[in-house]
Design a protein around this nucleic acid. Structure first.
Lengths: 258, 258
DNA sequence: TCATAAACGAACAAATTCGATCATATTCTA
DNA sequence: TAGAATATGATCGAATTTGTTCGTTTATGA
C-alpha cells in the first residue's frame, strides 16, 4: 500500500465512517498502514473540527440520533444571558388574556419559558419545541395553538399548511426571532420557507415585535422577512453599539435595550 | 459481526426499545454479544441520561419525554405485545413512495416506530409525539407533515386548524387508532374534537385501516367516528373472540388478525 | 407467608484503549 | 545543504471498559 498523505487519510477515515457508521482505532491503523497513535491523532484533529465524534475505541458520526437537533442546544447557550434579558423585557409587554404568537427561534424559546405562568394566554407558534414547553406546564387556562406544516432543521413548521393556518388567525402581539438584520436588508433568515412563514406571522399580528440579540446586527440571511421600518418594536441587548442603536431608532418606532 | 463501540451499542438498544417498547437484559446481552453486566451498565448510564427508564429485568421507554401525560406510557404498556403485532401486520401494507396518515394513539405510535426506515414515505399525523419519532430518525427521504391545531390530553392536535389542514391533503392509506368499537356504535372515541378530526382523516384517505387491539371491542366512547362498514380494513389481535370476528367479518371488507 | 429462581450490583481482575513524552523520519524553508 | 518545522512511531503508566464471581434483592407462585 502506498503511503497516504495526512489529508487523504482523513478523507478515507470519513469515507469508512459514512459507510459503516463507526470506525475503530485498531482497524483503521491496520487498514491505513499507520500506527494507532497516528490514527488517534487524526481522530483528535477531526473531532476538533467537528467532522466526527470520538468515543472510546474509535469514533462515530455526529449522529446524536435520539437527542435530535444538536445545534439547537448549542445555539441556545450562545448569548444565553442576553437572550434571557431580552425575554424578560419582552414578557413585560404581555398581559393576561392576550393572544400572542412566537415563531421558531432560540430567543422566542427563552421567552416561551417565561410565559407559561401567565393566565388566560393564547399562544400561536410554529415550533413544536415551544409548544412542548406549554404542554409540559399544563396550565389549563392557556390555549396553545400549533400551526401545521413540515418541520425545518431549525424546528420550524413551514409550508402551505403553516401559511393556511396563520391566515386564519389573528393575535395581539407577535414576537419574531430573526437570524440577521441590517439597514439595507432589514430582517432576514437563511431559510426561504421560514421567511415566507414569518411574513404570514407578521400579517397575523396587530403588533409586531422583533426579539434579537446584538450579534444579529450586521448579519444578512438569504431571504428578507421585512424591512426595518415594517415592525413596531425591536427588543435587543444593551451591548448594542450606540451608533447602531441610533440607526435603528430612526427606522423603528420603539427600540428596547434589555 | 464486527465489534460494536459502546456508543453504537447504546444506539442499538435505543432502536430496539423504540421498536418493541421494552428491552430485556438477557435478550440484549445475547443480541449484542456482551455480558449481562455490560448491558446493565449500559442501561444505567442511559437511564442516568434520561433516555430510558430501568425496570426489573430490563428497561422501557421514558414514561414521558417531557414529563407530562402520565397516561400515555401506561396505555402504551397495556397490551404491548398485541399492539406490536398489529403494527407489524399494518406496516406490511405500506410500500416505499406511499403517503400515509396516522392519527394520535398508542397503536399508531407503535406503527410509526416501524415506519422510520421506509424510504420515500410521506406521513401525515396530528400527533406531535409521532412526528417526533420521525424527526429523531432524520431520514431525509421522508416527508413528515404535522397538522396544526390545539393539543388534547391524548396528544392529538384537533380543532379548526387540524380540519383545515386535513381538508387540503390526500393520502393513500390512513391508519386509524380508536378507543372503542361495537356493532351499533361503530368506531368511537371519548373526545368530541378528536372524533371530528378523525372523520377528516377518513375523508382524506383513499384507503381506511383501523388498528385496534381486542380490548377495544365492546367499548363505546362518547362520539362516533364512523360505522363499522365505513372503513376498508381492520387490523386487530388474534385473541379476538371467534364470534366477534365473525360479526366483524360481516361488516368489514378485510379483517386481519395479527 | 414462604420458597425458589431470576435479576441485581458491588468488587475484583483482565484486557483494551488512551495520551503524554520522547525518539526518529520526512518535508519545508532559507 | 543546514536547520526548522512537522509528521510519525514507540514506550509506558493511567484510565476505561468488560467479564466473572458472589452475596443481596426482587418477583412470583405455591
Amino acid at each position: 500500500m502506498t503511503e497516504l498523505l495526512a489529508t487523504a487519510r482523513h478523507q478515507q477515515i470519513l469515507e469508512s465512517l459514512r459507510l459503516n457508521g463507526q470506525v475503530r482505532v485498531t482497524a483503521l491503523a491496520e487498514e491505513l498502514g499507520v500506527s494507532e497513535m497516528t490514527v488517534r491523532r487524526d481522530l483528535n484533529t477531526m473531532a476538533a473540527s467537528g467532522s466526527l465524534v470520538k468515543v472510546h475505541g474509535g469514533a462515530t458520526l455526529d449522529a446524536a440520533p435520539t437527542s435530535n437537533e444538536p445545534g439547537f442546544a448549542k445555539k441556545l447557550a450562545l448569548e444565553l444571558e442576553e437572550k434571557q434579558a431580552i425575554a424578560r423585557a419582552a414578557v413585560a409587554m404581555i398581559r393576561p388574556g392576550m393572544s400572542i404568537a412566537l415563531n421558531s427561534g432560540t430567543t422566542t424559546f427563552a421567552l416561551a419559558g417565561l410565559c407559561t405562568r401567565i393566565n388566560d394566554l393564547t399562544v400561536v407558534t410554529n415550533s413544536p419545541r415551544i409548544a412542548e414547553i406549554f404542554y409540559a406546564e399544563d396550565n389549563h387556562s392557556q390555549n396553545i395553538i400549533l400551526t401545521g406544516g413540515i418541520r425545518t432543521v431549525s424546528d420550524a413548521l413551514v409550508g402551505p399548511l403553516a401559511l393556511s393556518a396563520l391566515g386564519q388567525l389573528h393575535v395581539d402581539i407577535l414576537f419574531l426571532g430573526v437570524h440577521g438584520m441590517t439597514v439595507e436588508g432589514g430582517f432576514t433568515t437563511p431559510n426561504m420557507l421560514e421567511a415566507q412563514t414569518n411574513q404570514a406571522f407578521l400579517k397575523a399580528a396587530a403588533r409586531q415585535v422583533v426579539v434579537a440579540d446584538h450579534t444579529k446586527w450586521g448579519v444578512t440571511g438569504l431571504c428578507q422577512i421585512a424591512g426595518l421600518g415594517e415592525v413596531d418594536a425591536l427588543v435587543t441587548g444593551s451591548m448594542l453599539e450606540p451608533e447602531t442603536a441610533e440607526i435603528l431608532r430612526q427606522s423603528i418606532e420603539s427600540l428596547v435595550l434589555a
